[in-house]
Structures are given as C-alpha cells and as structure tokens.
Simulated assay, not measured.
Amino acid sequence: MDIASLVSTEEGMSLAREYSCSFFETSAALRFYIDDVFHGLVREIRRKESSLSMIEKKVKRKDSLWRKLKGSLKKKKETTT
C-alpha cells in the first residue's frame, strides 16, 4: 500500500468539519465500507434533490419565462392564421 494515498483520521475529520459533511473511514483496496458510503451518498443526493424540487414548487412565479414564451407564440400563431 502506498503511504502517499493514506489520509489521516484527523485530516479527514477536519475536512469534514470544514465542509459540513460526514466523515467515513474506508479502504478502496480492501473494500471496507465502500458500498455503505456509496449508498449513503446516493440517499443524500436524492434527499437534496427532493427538498430542492419542493422549494421550487413553492417559489414558482406566475409570470414565468415559459408562460411568457408560450403566450407570445400563441399571439404569433393567431396573427399568421
């Protein structure tokens, strides 16, 4: 095992605190906790996506860009027919 590829527990915990995220001790070479971390990461991504979509629904504006475009296309279609 290459010493340069090791990260100390203290360094990992420090970075986790700095970035406000979880810290896991894993080993890709020995496959320790790799699946657990991967599944946890996927759950976190899904949770954030879900909370973002709920926020977007609450903040949806009545005069969205899409509605403006759609309205202008209807006007053009009516004037050309």
Rank of each mutant, 00 (worst) to 15 (best):
M1P: 03
M1C: 05
M1Q: 04
I3C: 12
A4G: 12
S5F: 09
L6N: 11
L6G: 06
V7Q: 05
V7N: 04
V7E: 05
S8V: 04
S8Y: 06
S8T: 14
T9P: 05
T9Q: 14
E10L: 09
E11I: 07
G12C: 05
M13K: 15
S14H: 12
S14A: 14
L15F: 11
L15C: 08
A16Q: 13
A16G: 11
A16T: 10
R17Y: 04
R17E: 09
E18L: 13
S22C: 07
S22Q: 12
S22R: 12
F23H: 13
F23T: 04
F24E: 04
F24I: 04
E25F: 03
T26W: 02
T26C: 10
A29G: 06
A29P: 02
L30G: 07
R31V: 08
F32W: 06
F32S: 09
F32D: 07
Y33I: 08
Y33M: 13
I34P: 00
I34E: 02
D35A: 15
D36I: 13
H39Y: 15
G40V: 05
G40Y: 09
L41G: 10
L41C: 12
E44A: 13
E44N: 11
I45R: 00
I45F: 01
R46G: 07
R46P: 02
K48L: 01
E49N: 14
S50P: 00
S51I: 03
L52H: 05
M54V: 06
I55V: 03
I55G: 00
E56H: 03
E56G: 01
K57C: 02
K57L: 05
K57M: 06
K58V: 00
K58E: 00
V59P: 00
V59Q: 01
K62V: 05
K62P: 04
K62S: 08
D63Y: 06
D63S: 09
D63P: 02
L65S: 09
W66R: 11
W66D: 09
K68D: 03
L69G: 05
K70E: 09
K70V: 05
S72Y: 07
L73C: 06
K74W: 06
K74V: 10
K75E: 14
K75S: 11
K76I: 07
K76F: 08
K77P: 00
K77T: 08
K77V: 08
E78K: 11
T79R: 14
T80P: 10
